[in-house]
């Protein structure tokens, strides 16, 4: 195990966490890779915001690297490929250069849906859940679709300018609610309950909550607490966005 190799291995761990991996899975993968390269012992402590890896080679030399992780999201395709890469490394022990090449290939744009599909998916998600929660009026569904697309667009934009995630969710919820209330004011729709719920469904940190509980029971208490607090703050930000829009427009009554 050399410093160069450790750098690439740590990079894999960081990217797995950024793609939304479970912490124990990341720690497990890195330990396996360490053993495969003949390390005497591998210690890793990972959370969703920080990572420390320490490897002791057969000569007794210890290499340690630490990384700060600033943003996490959910990207299943990337996660799948990173997992496959980790398994491949454990099985064949390639050199650092080859791992780096494969990492670049995984990061390529071809593995991601284009932005317009993402934005449209947000719209369809909001519209589908608008129907799901009891709306049957065509105009309501259409407004929900627009609100969802606006949210998707804002999420993409805020990601580009790396706005704080909690603040970003607040703005998305705020803008979506404003649009819905505007539709209510001009008489396009009779009620905005289901439209707002549809929008909430495409913003809500459901993943964070369930992952947090799982982490807690697996024993990653630290990550569980981080994730739980983030999920609660995101939910509050979404709620506050709606409240701010209602207060600004002077209530939701027509």
């Amino acid at each position: 195990m050399t410093t160069e190799l450790l750098k690439t291995v740590v990079e894999i761990a960081v990217q797995m966490i950024q793609a939304g991996a479970e912490i124990h899975r990341v720690e497990d993968s890195i330990c396996r890779i360490g053993t495969a390269y003949g390390a005497k012992r591998t210690d890793i402590f990972a959370t969703t915001s920080n990572l420390i890896v320490s490897v002791e080679d057969t000569g007794g030399e210890v290499y340690t690297q630490t990384r700060r992780i600033l943003s996490t999201g959910t990207d299943i395709e990337r996660l799948d490929r990173l997992n496959a890469l980790a398994r491949h490394i454990t099985a064949t022990c390639p050199d650092a250069e080859s791992i780096r090449r494969q990492l670049t290939a995984i990061a390529s744009r071809n593995n991601r849906y284009p932005a317009w599909i993402y934005i449209l998916a947000c719209g369809i998600c909001a519209a589908a859940f608008c129907v799901f929660f009891g709306s049957r009026a065509p105009w309501e569904i259409l407004v929900a679709l627009l609100v969802g697309c606006l949210t998707g667009l804002l999420i993409k934009l805020t990601e580009k300018f790396t706005v704080n995630r909690i603040l970003a969710r607040f703005f998305c919820s705020f803008a979506g609610s404003l649009l819905a209330i505007a539709a209510l004011r001009i008489g396009l729709v009779q009620t905005i309950d289901t439209i707002i719920i549809g929008n909430i469904m495409s913003l809500i940190p459901g993943v964070g909550l369930t992952q947090s509980i799982r982490d807690l029971f697996i024993g990653d208490t630290f990550t569980a607490i981080l994730r739980l607090i983030e999920a609660v703050l995101l939910a509050l930000a979404i709620a506050c966005g709606y409240v701010a829009a209602v207060l600004l427009m002077g209530g939701v009554a027509v």
């Binding site: 959910t74 991601r112 998916a121 369809i124 998600c125 589908a128 495409s202």
Partner: peptide, 11 residues
Amino acid sequence: IGTLAFGLIFN
């Protein structure tokens, strides 16, 4: 449909 759209969001 909603779940399908969510799958797209999660790539």
